[in-house]
């Protein structure tokens, strides 16, 4: 089996062949062969990502306490808010509380994606797969996790605090895009924070300010959904999609500089 990588993108045409006998030999490839190489890189990337996501899911299923802990965190936070607020009718308060709960739950849920990885395990991964595959698989896995998490959050929240959403489909769309955005941003920040000494505190400090643009758009859209505006605000939706694409593209491009130790 041969796996093709382009290294660093500096030279562009340099492709590294990964041999079964584990020798890294850079080969200059041009023209058709280069295009073929790019195609193979993408194929391999897809396969690697698929494999890594399956691995993450398998690991999570093997140790259900972590997942259960995060889900319980959401439920108990909502229950505590229920005990102090009872029912919330004011849309602004309802919206703010919902997103604050989801924000903290997401940070807790995603933080472990890199902070809990042992150095040896990461080193092993890095000898086998490309860095892009690692970050993409983590983003996809965390997106799945956050979609489940936000779905549960919405369900429990509307049961206890009350459901005042008038346009559920827009709210669900916002929640879906928000989960993807949160997961990609937090995965990247978690990768950055895992390189420092006091990583859990830093995770919060680093992620809050850069999450604000995303959060503002989400809050605006979900407020529209709660108020049940007749026309969807396509400008904000477009900004949200655009933000997701930018965050994922940046993670894809920048992650390889993080893992080189």
């Amino acid at each position: 089996m041969q796996i093709f990588y382009s290294i660093d993108g500096n030279e562009g045409e340099f492709v590294v062949c990964y041999n079964p006998n584990r020798v890294w030999n850079p080969v200059r490839v041009e023209g058709k062969a280069f295009l073929l190489g790019i195609f193979q890189i993408n194929c391999m990337l897809f396969l690697q990502v698929k494999y890594l996501v399956a691995k993450e899911v398998k690991l999570e299923m093997r140790n259900k306490y972590a997942l259960g802990g995060i889900l319980l965190y959401v439920v108990s936070t909502i229950f505590v808010s229920y005990l102090s607020f009872k029912q919330i009718i004011n849309p602004a308060t309802w919206n703010a509380l919902f997103w604050i709960i989801l924000l903290f739950a997401s940070i807790n849920g995603v933080a472990k994606s890199f902070l809990n990885e042992t150095r040896g395990k990461l080193l092993y991964l890095y000898t086998l797969v490309s860095p892009q595959a690692v970050i993409l698989s983590k983003i996809i896995y965390n997106s799945l996790l956050l979609i489940v998490l936000s779905g549960l959050c919405l369900f429990v929240y509307s049961v206890f605090i009350g459901n005042i959403i008038q346009d559920l489909s827009l709210f669900l769309l916002t929640l879906l895009l928000g989960s993807i955005g949160f997961s990609s941003l937090l995965t990247m920040v978690s990768a950055i924070a895992s390189k420092t000494s006091n990583n859990f505190t830093l995770m919060a400090i680093l992620s809050f300010p850069i999450m604000v643009p995303l959060l503002m758009v989400l809050i605006k859209l979900s407020r529209n959904a709660i108020d049940g505006l007749e026309n969807w605000d396509l400008n904000y939706l477009m900004v949200l999609v655009f933000l997701n694409i930018i965050i994922i593209a940046l993670s894809y491009l920048l992650f390889r500089y993080l893992w080189r130790d």
């Binding site: 950055i192 390189k195 503002m216 930018i246 920048l254």
Partner: peptide, 22 residues
């Protein structure tokens, strides 16, 4: 140097969205 640069690039792009688009 490397990690701060990655954060700087990431943060600046989010900032541009916040300052220019919103």
């Amino acid at each position: 140097a490397r990690i701060a640069a990655v954060y700087n690039i990431f943060a600046y792009v989010m900032l541009i969205v916040f300052l220019m688009i919103l």
